[in-house]
Amino acid sequence: MRVFDLATTPLRELNSALHTVAPGANDTSFEVVNPRGSHSVAVGIDKPVTVEVKGSVGYYCAGMNDGGTITVHGSAGPGVAENMMSGTVVIEGDASQYAGATGRGGLLVIKGNAASRCGISMKGIDIVVHGSIGHMSAFMGQSGHLVVLGDAGDALGDSLYEAKLFVRGTVKSLGADCVQKEMKPKHLKLLAELLEKAGATDVKPEEFKRYGSARKLYNFNIDNADAY
């Protein structure tokens, strides 16, 4: 295992080491100490490496992750796991705004709370938040799943496409075109799998409500012309 101390080593050395792991290499474990809120820790990973970050990080940690497993033993700043392609990112603490934004795949687990715009424009990523999420989460979410064990803030799922949202607690308000939907057996099964993957073993899928798109904003409706 290679250890990078960001108090003494430039961030670029860490990220460049992560980017130059040879295909099939067996030395794929990394540890990062003293991140102290650094930006862009472990971005652009495209190999199945494992990164343990011992502390809190700033902007854009694990951005564009494609196949890596990154665990932050602390909290994350804005844009964690932004545009993830595949792999797993786990935040032991809280995440700031737009966690998992535009993500196309992989699993983002936030053990604490996530702030506003969690999963904004998500396109296939699965996000499981053990705590609560802030306003405008899953805005224009296209596909993927957002699972929230706690509560959701204002305007959940505004202008939603086909991302599926599951919230166990209260939803402060639903955004435009986002509605509660029936929880069918296939959704319960899917949710059970996501909860298990995210280590949320003490809650049952039946405790959640499902939200999705009413599909009324997909096309221009002439009756709304006066609103523009």
Binding site: R36, G37, G58, S75
Partner: peptide
Amino acid sequence: EYRALVNLPGIEDARVW
């Protein structure tokens, strides 16, 4: 940003939000 707070005494045990 959190970076601004990392040198404060006892930050490891502070309530951060």
